[in-house]
């Protein structure tokens, strides 16, 4: 399993577009927002937590179809299915690799982009904390969506349609925590709910995703 993780990470880095693409996309979204809503920095500081969460979510979405697609096309997913580790673990490791190459860098980069949007002083810590807790859920839910659409030729758009409604609860609690943090309110409740969603998703979705992959490999 560790070898699989290392292999996935190596592929993501050497093939290009792993770290860089998601981060650049996040940057572009952040840069476009002020053009859309005008240069009022007071308004920016109000909407900053939500925009940063939305940008991170979309950047995560961008690389989802790479989780299984390439392995499906070159046949290594068949090998993994016959390997002596359960499919559920494969899903978990792949989601972890996806998180390490997209969720983690996005979390670390978010404070920098927060500066652009005039995020209030106290908000930085909570933005990073909420992203750190929430992005694993985005990766594992996305892995489930990718598992559903892995056999399709034009799966990308369908994948977004399937995954985005599943992202709603994560998004709600994540932005709520970040927003409350930025306004200096108590943040424990949304953070705990967010952690609960992440934990629940990690516990349940590998089974659903593995079932979907088995169906697709049939």
């Amino acid at each position: 399993m560790i070898r699989l993780l290392v292999r996935d990470l190596r592929l993501a880095m050497r093939a290009g577009g792993g770290f860089g693409l998601g981060l650049s996309f996040f940057l572009v979204v952040t840069v476009l927002v002020p053009f859309g809503v005008g240069p009022d920095s007071g308004l920016h500081s109000v909407i900053a937590p939500g925009i940063l969460w939305l940008g991170a979510l979309l950047a995560c979405l961008l690389s989802l179809d790479r989780i299984f697609q390439l392995d499906y096309e070159d046949g290594s997913l068949d090998l993994l299915a016959t390997a002596p580790i359960p499919m559920e673990n494969v899903v978990l490791v792949k989601a972890l690799a996806h998180w390490l190459t997209s969720g983690l860098p996005l979390t670390l980069a978010a404070p920098v982009f927060g500066v652009f949007l005039n995020l209030p002083q106290g908000g930085y810590v909570w933005l990073v904390v909420s992203l750190a807790i929430g992005t694993p859920a985005l990766s594992i839910i996305g892995a489930f969506g990718a598992a559903l659409t892995v056999g399709l030729k034009r799966g990308g758009l369908l994948l977004s349609l399937l995954v985005l409604p599943l992202y709603v609860p994560t998004m709600i609690f994540g932005t709520e925590a970040a927003r409350r943090g930025a306004e200096g309110l108590e943040t424990m409740t949304p953070l705990l709910m967010l952690a609960g969603i992440t934990a629940g998703a990690i516990a349940m979705l590998p089974f659903a995703a593995a079932a979907a992959i088995r169906v697709n490999l049939r």
């Binding site: 709603v168 609860p169 709910m193 969603i197």
Partner: peptide, 9 residues
């Protein structure tokens, strides 16, 4: 989950 999450929101 969404049904109850939006209550919170």
């Amino acid at each position: 989950l969404s049904r109850y999450a939006v209550n919170f929101w």
